[in-house]
Nucleic acid binder design. Structure first.
Lengths: 121, 121
DNA sequence: GAGATAGTCAAGTGGATGCTTCAGTGTCGC
DNA sequence: GCGACACTGAAGCATCCACTTGACTATCTC
């Protein structure tokens, strides 16, 4: 029954930060080093690293160290899982709205006043 | 240039909480009252209300009070904006991976050793 | 109208988050 | 070898978050 998904917590939490979204955005164009990711961010390298660790902990990003630079790249699978969680719900919502529309259209001519007060303000 | 989107912060932040995701999931099947949303959640009504307020503040949920009950319903537009932020990046990632694949395939027979050390651990 | 129901407001609390500084460590380039 | 570079770890700190309790307000229901 739709088991509790601990990873989604962390993925959405990770995406909630604008700096981390910027990193994801950058990485979606290709791999980058930690300092490269932090360049547009006006914060310490240490802070950047912490963000990278958050992204890595939730599976959004993978990284490997080569020499003295750590190269990060994105993991599309984690993006996909978050995306489809949302997509599934949105699809359901829209399907229900469509059915509601059909129902309203079908009962529009009938004199049954079972209308809920929808759409305030 | 992809302006800073303050709402996405709050939408992802809202979705980061498993209880709130459960509420969104419930609402994706149709409207519900505050106490109905909180029923499976083992927390105070006051706490449930706070979650609802978070969901409302980011635009994921709308609500209207009728009599003494507040009926909440979901707003698909907010879901859509979060979904497409992710989808855009994921699409970009996958396109780039495809291009990389093509590049590797095209240069596979050439004796140029420009291979990066990918895939650690 | 009295008691139950459904929600609301405000204040407080413990734990997580997002930084910082500082003191390293390992690598690169000359 | 030595200085610069890229990163790492630990500690500290301000703020935010997810609750709780307790007091209160409407609205039903009988």
């Amino acid at each position: 029954m739709l088991a509790y998904a601990p990873d989604l917590d962390r993925v959405f939490q990770a995406l909630a930060d604008p700096g981390r979204r910027l990193m994801v955005d950058r990485l979606s164009r290709g791999p980058a080093s930690v300092s490269e990711l932090g360049r547009p961010l006006a914060m310490t390298l240490a802070a950047v690293l912490q963000h990278v660790q958050v992204l890595e902990a939730c599976g959004l990003v993978r990284s490997a160290k080569l020499g003295r630079t750590r190269t990060c790249s994105i993991n599309p699978a984690a993006l996909r899982s978050a995306e489809s969680w949302i997509a599934d719900r949105r699809t359901m919502v829209e399907r229900n709205l469509d059915r509601l529309g059909e129902y309203l259209a079908a009962t529009a001519d009938q004199p049954d006043p079972t209308s809920h007060a929808e759409g305030q303000q």
